[in-house]
Design a protein around this nucleic acid. Sequence first.
DNA 1: GACCAGGACGGCT
DNA 2: AGCCGTCCTGGT
Length: 300
Amino acid sequence: MSEVKNLDDYVVNEYETGVIVKDVKDFDPVHIFDCGQCFRWIGEEDGSYTGVAMGKVINVKRDGKDIVIDNTNLKDFKNIWFEYFDLGRDYSLLKKEFVKFDENLKNAVDFGWGIRLLQQDGWEMIISFIISSNNRIPMIQRAINNICQRYGKCIGEYRGKKYYSFPDPKELSVATVEELRDCKTGFRDKYIYSTTKDIVENNININDFLEMDSETCHKELMKFKGVGAKVADCIALFGMRKYNSFPVDVWVKRVMQEFYNAKEMSLPKMRKYGMDLFGDDAGFAQQYLFYYVRELEIGK
DNA sequence: GACCAGGACGGCT
DNA sequence: AGCCGTCCTGGT
């Protein structure tokens, strides 16, 4: 069994409006879209999820062992969605290691067995996670929606609803602080304004962050207004492929206190402790643990 | 109306 | 370097 999966390892059948990917392991839309890594995926009545990513609107559901992606085609699956859904990674192997690691991680993996880390757009993660600071998920989703409707492009209709792309830095740079406040971003309005301006005026290339090592990336991200240690870790993990990142939010703090003997530890120490404990795969461990304790409200 | 949830910042030591 | 008051919004 190989460690990395290739495009040809999957059987993909195209139908009129989408594709069916046969026999996909370790993939559950509920776990993926509800584990805190993304904000633009909405659950539909039929249990499927519709969302906007990479400037396209698609609908995703699990049908037994298969994954059905609607409103797309084989070409986009190969060029975009294979990577976006991290289908090149063997999560079974990863999970096997975690199950052996300890009882906590085993329970977390058993619970969130279908989690995958989406390979999302770095710029979108920067703005999204600035908005996430000291904020709750429904509010974050609403603010991002407002921003997309006002500054993004209409990319079409799906099931009778219009969808908008996430604005690029240039598109968002026309927004004033007051307009951003109107989008319900709260006190983060000035951070979004400043960071967008910073990126546009200094010609910062977001792709450069992908090339950096993890520590440099984290340090550079923290130079943006509104980006502290936790937000930088989320951007690095979800948007910059820095898989040893260990974002410590209130829930992860509770896990570390409850399960990992870190009762009196400060947040910076906890971050380093998590990275040392879980090593190169700290980001994956963080996701399983986060989803597990948040859903079960452990340590609250 | 008081209180709570949720991180970054800036001023203080 | 570390601690703490403040920031906005919506829900209880």
